[in-house]
Amino acid sequence: MSRFDSLFGFIRDHYRSDAAIPLHAPAFIGQEKTYVMDTLDSTFVSSVGAYVDQFEQRMAAYTGSARAVATVNGTAALQVALRIAGVSAGDYVITQPLTFIATCNAIAYCSATPIFIDVDRTTLGLSPQAMDEWLQQNAQLDDQGRCVHRADGRVIRACLPMHTFGHPCDLDGLMTVCSRWHLGLVEDAAEALGSRYRGQHAGTFGRLGTLSFNGNKILTTGGGGMILANEADGQRAKHLTTTAKVPHPYEYDHDELGYNFRLPNLNAALGCAQLEQLDVFLAEKRQLAAEYAEHLADSELTFVSEPPHCESNYWLNAVLCPNASARQALLEASNQSGIMMRPVWRLMNELTMYQQAPAGDLSEARWLADHLVNLPSGVRASIPSEAT
């Protein structure tokens, strides 16, 4: 017997399964096979094909972005977005320690260094107040209007918040601080497809935003990502991700250092089919979140609800345990019972490659790392068909 048996029973009843329950698996309930087979029949399975164009156009329309540029994965999208935002070798980029490693790796790929600023407990994302306080103590605007680190004179070029588990950050606050300190805002919205802040889609507030379509995301292309941008930045993103090739009927001319970061047509076909089901996925996931919240209302676990002014996609549902020992007990009991639950990522500032990066007081991030557990969050159709 476990003190969490009621929760485990709820999860099994919801998924109507006695089999292993994954944290978040993809569901293919629409035209996925049809569209993918169509790419095989057309022979356009690589980086050129009708589905790439359709996927970009439909994603731009869905998010309200002027342009959407498909990439091979979300990390590549972040790297290119940061480059377009002006991040270059020697720069600093402000971000949060509570994130997936791709956020920091994209900064490092630009030969820049992260500065770790604490998160808000209500949003799980970068705290505007903590960011502003750190900047007041450690930064200044130089005579060119650039934000520079007082200690070493290096430019702090941009701010890269991540919308954790699909919950939007305090974007009003972040935009105010970025404007005050002349920082470019690039949103890591990898987990936030379908999430909105004051009615506007996450990833469309900064100069650029990025999405991920990894196999565990709410919409998957197997692997893939997307850059959301204005028209000019979108054109540049398309150029950079297409090896910076100058258009010509047959000549090979490349005018700058580019990347082969294009999303294959095969993957885009899968994405088009998944996008047709996105509203269904969102509705089911929000219903599950409401049921989790109701079931846990009188328990020792506190359900993490969407922040004020937000509509979250509830990509991964989460609970806060009363202490670290309860967190460990929940993780061990759930995984032993065949129900996958996971802790939050190890904080980025604790990883070997980022231990020397500048950081502020990270007490909220550390508290969340000690208390937070993710619950199974996929739609019912993601459970294997043989489960009964």
Score class of each variant (00 low, 15 high):
A27P: 00
Q144D: 15
E300C: 12
I383D: 03
L278N: 06
S382L: 00
L372F: 00
G166T: 12
K238I: 09
N349F: 10
E350D: 14
Y314E: 04
H254A: 11
V52L: 05
S325F: 07
A102C: 04
T210H: 00
L126T: 10
D91F: 03
I227H: 05
E294V: 11
S382I: 00
C169Q: 13
A237E: 10
L160W: 13
D143W: 10
G215W: 15
R146S: 12
T210G: 02
E284K: 15
D170K: 01
L288H: 08
A365E: 09
V87Y: 01
V36W: 08
A290W: 03
D361C: 14
F261T: 07
F8R: 12
E332W: 02
R207K: 11
W315L: 12
S42Q: 10
Q31M: 11
C272Y: 08
E256H: 14
S363V: 13
K217M: 15
D91R: 03
S195A: 15
D298W: 00
F261M: 09
D233Q: 14
Q336D: 12
V48G: 06
R150H: 06
M340C: 11
L347K: 02
F10S: 04
E276K: 07
G74F: 01
D38E: 12
T63A: 01
A61I: 05
A290S: 13
